[in-house]
Amino acid sequence: MLKDVSFGQFYPAESFAHRLDPRLKILFLIAFITATFLAKNFYGLVLCAAVLVLAVLFSGIPVGKVVRSVKGVLFLVIFTALLNVFFYQGATVYWSWWILRITKEGLLFSAFLALRLALLVMCSSLLTYTTTPVALTDGIESLLTPLKWIRFPVHELALIMSIALRFIPILIDETERIMNAQKARGADFETGGLVKRVRAVVPVLIPLLLSAFRRAEELGDAMDARCYMGSKNRTKYKKLRFGWRDLVAFLTGAALVTGVVLLRVFVGATI
């Protein structure tokens, strides 16, 4: 029953953000990331945060869920922050010992980094919460289309991604089932040293790999039987289309980047 939770990250809802063209959401995320990196003072980040709050409000996703998405990278956030707290070279020293020192600038910079990272993660999660994996791969395929000119297999790549996404829940389910079956035969995955634990994985890994190969073979046959011949002469049922919502999102993204740049020019880089 793991599969229900891990189905992509998609959170079903009817909202402004859910209806946006996936390409636009990807571009918006890129704009957002650019903006957070261009921001060189707290005002810039606050502007980013404000735009994110707006986006969350228009997404129908519970605020708590978006905030909790940081949990996955919490360790990374704390680690980089701590590193900077102790090693950042600043002028106003509060405390120092050996090569470690805590400075006002270091504290500010750490807070800045942590905030930036948290914003990045939350905005990325927002994308996966509001976009089905299929729409996401369609979006990526469409955005990468220019690469076809240099013979980059865009279509094949997108298909591989969407099939992978489709089989992840199935394979998670299967892992769980095989683990249970081996546990019932006395396998122990929880105790023992590293060597013992690695060895305990073998009875799960081998059946899982065999099953994945078997599934791949059967899926290959099923695709062949349905006349799959690569991207040649292939049509596409779902066409992505820009609408007024997309224009709004586009303008917001553009405004955000401009705003951050203006803040940097007029307020100056304080970090």
């Binding site: 969407s162 199935i170 599934r215 099923a222 695709m223 292939r234 049509t235």
Partner: peptide
Amino acid sequence: FQNPDNQTVASIVEDDIAFGAENIGV
């Protein structure tokens, strides 16, 4: 084919049904 899980390409019903038709250029 036999295994219901191993012959669907897409996650969503209509996308999967479309697959074959897309392949033959409908």
